[in-house]
Write a protein that binds this DNA or RNA. Structure first.
Lengths: 354, 354
DNA sequence: GGAAACTACGTTAGCGCTAACGTAAAGCCC
DNA sequence: GGGCTTTACGTTAGCGCTAACGTAGTTTCC
């Protein structure tokens, strides 16, 4: 009584034979005409289109997917959508995927590997044409399953030489190393890092590793870290930074932040303690987010062409779906964008080599 | 040559008869067992589950959707995902929808009614179990099509007494009226509004209408407006506000902003001109976004329980899918949250009645 | 103790569509 | 002008699954 049966909708929909009957041809001709497959005269094709329109015929993709063995769905998995980074990559992929006739199913796993694995299992019920995942760190089963079923797979946002299938992204460790080296050149010596808790975001962790490498290679001390929970970038950045800078004796001279939002909130935290960047402390963001366009002091950050990354990823993935073999992966190069929250190279009279 | 044929994947997948054969039962028994439909003994059900697991059987949802006449897909359409407002509503809906066995297809139309209509036509190819749209302003065809096909439809984010099917949201005009009235009580007399260009966001436009009504009812002058294009809230808010406040002779004493992001950027713009809130000017946001948690001066804003709204919407929609009739719509009430960018009621010695 | 009701299955007939394989008619070639 | 190819269709046989309808065997009931 409490659980009612799913109601089948009443009004029966028009199917391909209705169009065929009206056009006085076989259903196969209608199928060919509407799909743009050759083997139909132009006159008939036009006529069939008109009749289909008149009858408001809607092809049934479920039936189509069934005979095609695979559907035209593409499963996409992001950690979260509360982050313009992923929204932008999605935005970069979508036009390409849609104009190729694919429909996207987007899910988020909130940085939880188990949920990602779960999703991989479930999305396969739809026999998707391909799958897109964020990053390259997954439960080992994910790789096994996708390889066994030969599902074209794109790992986006991070580059590796050993992807499941193909990947398009940056090397996050190198990105960390790069920005850290530039900061070292600018004379910063006491680094700190503010980010999420361990295991939350592998990419962020790798950037930290890169920062550590750079400072250690320069013979400088370790990187203090503040890790925060939750999902609110601003709050996390605020609290984490506050913790790091509040003790004067251990205060860092440069704070690397998980993102520009972290960095902005970190700046707010510093200001609440009477510290300002870049005079008292340097602050570095990541990802060049839009808030940076309106700040009186722009945050020094690392820019990645995320939309373009999505577009390239989508293009390569479609190539793979169409049977193109070989290495379709692409590596992007991040760029440091100087703002006013750190010293800048032009501020230096001469270059210092660490 | 340039267009290659979609390759069918080689490794044939296990289907229901493979499981049936292995379990020595008919496929119907397997189907029933795995779907949790009654008519199978507990012993057999357990055995079938084990065998299905062992064989790594994955039901084919395309086949299932074909026989069920409708799929377990739910199409969701948002204006954009570059806005936590929509990400949050989605986040509120998803757990409910997924635990009920539905998969979501999310699309964005970038505030373009034609794209929304296009999407409605296309998503129906999948015979979705339901459709979710943002707001109540659509191409008239949308309503006709959805009603004709009797597709359960949720209009989210905005409430009306005449929804396509069911709606869950707030009354945006009333929300505008409400906040404006509170500001009038606080003594503000020269209002302005910063938002997107006309036709971009109907909801925002309605809030402006509400603000106008309130000021006009109080016998006060009109509302000056600055409308900006683009997709970047911060940049739009910055430029729009700057335009409004830069001429001292026409400077408003209160600026109502499309969102908290607009408001934050507007504050930046004011500060760049040497104006601060609330001393020189009042600034009001909308939607209580997370940036507000870390600002030294929180923005006075209007809070809406968006996640809860999504959850309620999803619940009601599932009820409809399951055949529950009647009025399943719900109206939410927004709340004014005072920050430090306007005068506040406690600042007033006595209440002023306009 | 015999009919009725229930339980636990199996059988049948598609859901709407397309790949693969016909086939008739027209065009082409020397 | 006979065999070849090409064009423009039609026919056949499923894709994997489930609703609906059997049907044995068992239980219940008076």
């Amino acid at each position: 009584m409490s659980v009612e049966k799913k109601k089948q909708r009443s009004g029966k929909s028009i199917k391909i034979d209705d169009v065929a009957r009206e056009a006085n041809v076989s259903i196969m001709t209608v199928s060919r005409a509407l799909r743009g497959v050759e083997g139909v005269s132009e006159a008939k094709r036009t006529e069939i289109f008109e009749i289909a329109e008149k009858l408001r015929y809607q092809p049934n993709f479920n039936a189509r997917s069934l005979v095609n063995v695979q559907s035209s769905l593409i499963g996409i998995s992001f950690p979260t959508l509360f982050n313009d980074v992923f929204a932008e990559m999605l935005d970069g992929m979508r036009p390409t995927l849609e104009s190729a006739g694919f429909t996207t199913i987007v899910t988020t796993h909130e940085y939880d590997g188990a949920r990602e694995l779960d999703w991989i299992e479930t999305v396969r019920y739809w026999r998707p044409a391909a799958v897109v995942m964020t990053g390259i760190d997954h439960d080992p089963k994910v790789r096994r399953v996708l390889r066994r079923d030969q599902i074209p797979t794109l790992e986006l946002w991070e580059h590796t030489d050993d992807p499941i299938d193909l990947c398009v992204g940056i090397d996050h460790e190198k990105a960390g190393e790069q920005i850290a080296n530039e900061m070292i050149e600018l004379g910063y010596r006491r680094p700190a890092y503010v980010g999420w808790g361990r295991g939350h975001d592998y990419r962020s962790e790798k950037r930290l590793t890169g920062i550590r490498k750079a400072f250690s290679a320069a013979g400088l001390g370790g990187v203090r870290t503040a890790r925060t929970g939750g999902t609110d970038h601003y709050r996390a950045g605020f609290n984490g930074t506050k913790r790091l800078v509040s003790d004067q004796s251990t205060r860092p001279d440069i704070v690397f932040c998980h993102s520009d939002h972290f960095a902005f909130a970190g700046m707010m935290a510093c200001e609440s303690l009477g510290l300002s960047a870049p005079e008292d402390i340097g602050i570095v963001g990541f990802n060049s987010l839009s808030i940076n366009n309106v700040l009186p002091r722009r945050i020094t950050t690392v820019e990645v062409e995320r939309r373009e990354m999505g577009a390239v990823g989508a293009r390569q993935l479609i190539a793979r779906i169409n049977g193109i073999g070989g290495n379709l992966s692409k590596r992007f190069e991040p760029k440091v964008r100087y703002g006013a929250t750190t010293r800048t190279p032009t501020m230096m009279t001469g270059k210092t080599t660490a």
